[in-house]
Amino acid sequence: MNYAYYPGCSAKGSSADYEKSTQAVCAVLGMNLVEIPGWNCCGSTPAHAVDTELSAALCSRNLDIAAQQGVEKLLTPCPSCLSNLRHTAKRMENPQFRARVDELLDNPAAPDFPGVTSVMQGMAAHCDANGIASFIRKDLGQLTLAPYYGCLMSRPADIMDFGDPENPTLMECLLAACGAKVLDFPLKTACCGASYGIPERTMTARLSARILRLATDMKADAIVAACPLCQMNLDLRQPQAAKEADAIFAMPVLYFTQIMGLAFGLSPDTLGLEKLRVSASALLDKLEPAPSISKTPVEGGQSCE
């Protein structure tokens, strides 16, 4: 089944491994991700922090492309892109705002934009927990995982529509379907420090350290992320966090798609695991061949939605 897809710019750079594993896992699930042609950056943090209309113009151009293609639902892996696209769609409901944004565009934007949703929600809508279980080739039963959504995926609640803003549970459902032990991770929606890693490095280090400290104390084998920036702060900047907290961390931080890929028996190479700064090799050692593989979904499979 084809899905219109907006990768966002991190997918082409800093989170190439997220992109690679997303593509691989979606292929297994029978989701063919089709990039919309000629997309541009959503503006990320700088655009909307400086100029809401500029940010909306950047996003509207992408939404307009999708609309011209007749897309009904657009998937994106990045919570920041999702947030910008959804905020834009909401703001463009205001005619005065739309008029000002249209002035910035070559042509006025399409009157109706397609809905935008996260790849994670797209997967849950595509197949239920049993459907996911049917693809399992490796036993993740020895893995204890700390699901971490970041602050943006579920907030603001009315825009993001991602369950309870303080306690979303979709990732838990997917990871459990893959056979892993999933922690009730209290800081799952806490902020990692986000883009303050550049202007206020110690603040980001402090916030990330809090998350890494809790995952370590809860004896997680890995933190499972859903956001390129969170993953970068927790993984790449882990030494900075350790220094700030005067601690030693060795906490692998994987994307949820990488964990799913491992459960589906995909090779570390296919999932871009070599891109991780904190090695996931300890995790890989804990994987075992799945004892019995059920090819057909069990009746009455539970939906993760």
């Binding site: 209290p186 800081l187 806490a190 809790l214 370590t216 104390d217 809860m218 004896k219």
Partner: peptide
């Protein structure tokens, strides 16, 4: 703003 178990 939040209460959470510290894992210890």
């Amino acid at each position: 703003s939040a209460v959470y178990p510290d894992g210890l």
